[in-house]
Nucleic acid binder design. Sequence first.
DNA 1: ATTTATGCAACTTTCGAAAGTTGCTTGACA
DNA 2: TGTCAAGCAACTTTCGAAAGTTGCATAAAT
Lengths: 241, 241
Amino acid sequence: MGHQPTDPYDILRSGLIWGRWKSGERLIPQYLTAELGCTSSVLREALIRLAGEGLIISEKNQGFRAITHSPETFRQAAHLRLVFEVEASQMSLKNADFEWELSLSAAYQKLAHVEKQMIETGNAEKYVRHWSLQDWEFHSTLLSACGSDLLLKTYKSAFDTFRMYAVSSIPNYGFGGEITAQEHRAIYEAAIKHDIAACIKAIETHLVLYKDGNRTNEPLPAKSSLQAAKKSPPPKKKKKI
Amino acid sequence: MGHQPTDPYDILRSGLIWGRWKSGERLIPQYLTAELGCTSSVLREALIRLAGEGLIISEKNQGFRAITHSPETFRQAAHLRLVFEVEASQMSLKNADFEWELSLSAAYQKLAHVEKQMIETGNAEKYVRHWSLQDWEFHSTLLSACGSDLLLKTYKSAFDTFRMYAVSSIPNYGFGGEITAQEHRAIYEAAIKHDIAACIKAIETHLVLYKDGNRTNEPLPAKSSLQAAKKSPPPKKKKKI
DNA sequence: ATTTATGCAACTTTCGAAAGTTGCTTGACA
DNA sequence: TGTCAAGCAACTTTCGAAAGTTGCATAAAT
């Protein structure tokens, strides 16, 4: 069994990505202590680090907020993903060794498996979080042999920003059924064949729809509440009647 | 008259970029308080934020260190710059309006002027810091009309990493005399003509040498000490004789 | 002579309280 | 009624001390 993270930084980071706090929402250290099991100072440090990473905005004397996203910021994140994936997949395919091919195959099989379940059961929502993790594993493995840790680190940051928006505002976090599965297959097969041109084309096909905003126009599904028990701020003092 | 920054974060950030602390050097909050005029807690926060940005490394119970760079990390930063500049300059040229052309011209004239001084006086060292600032202004202005704040922010981070290494390890921070001046002119002229292909080519010419490590092989000049007055750690206890 | 324990100094991290800031609410004054 | 200022509650930021950790120096054991 895996362990739940207990480090406030990890909890906050993953909470931000998976929609525990919404776009623009204030994060007040004082009211998170009970839930995260530490004092507000420790939370403050975690929030500052996340501000440095760009997941949180902090303005002097105004505390912390989750970054605000919009279709436009999503478009920018998708565009950055596209730029990185096109560049780094080329480099990866050039450096690729046998071990890399093994991990890419493993990542692809796991991704394809969950996508098959989502399509066959017709119950995509049930698997969508797992799918999102496998989607990350597949894309990051594809780029992992590019030879630049800096590029990979920067890519991760763009991917997380992309995912934050997808989780909060796109049906099934962007999983588009059979079409998405086909796109992943095209990327995988081109990569395994070391066909750089086909791989780039497949990546562009996969991401250009987000970049141009064409996959964000569908209606939002009803979202169930994700609220965990938390100490709430005291009710505001009422105006005298 | 401009003001010196007094915010510890700004002082640390600029100190890191301009070589006040060297690659891998420990930053111990306790010994920086006198110099930066605040308590170690405030310094800690600034250091954590810089860790989030990637300029500082922090490991649990091991405190903070300036990121360690090497020819390889420099190569990666140069490569990232190249990727961003090629992509964003295209977008900028497409969006370019009159105001953008004015700021690009202004930035270029200032850059060309300091480069001329460096070449004519033969005393590049005297101007190199100013040159580095103008170099940033020129390159960032070129990309400024690309329409993606996220791309610009990410580019800045790569540029800072690039510059950190250049300041510490490359003669004249990478200013290569007449050749560099010519390269900047080629970029500028292609941009003003909205000649995307020529602009990309000029950018590639400008950056590919760093990317491939060919401008880092020159001998290092003697570096004078930059040490400011600082409270030093107490001398280590001597071994008994 | 080497390995293994113990002590200690130098930091690092966490804590909780004090000081500072912001923006509402309310009450005084035009 | 409108506006302006004082008061206040809710945070945010800073502080300095307490607690915890690491790694070296020295001492003890094999």
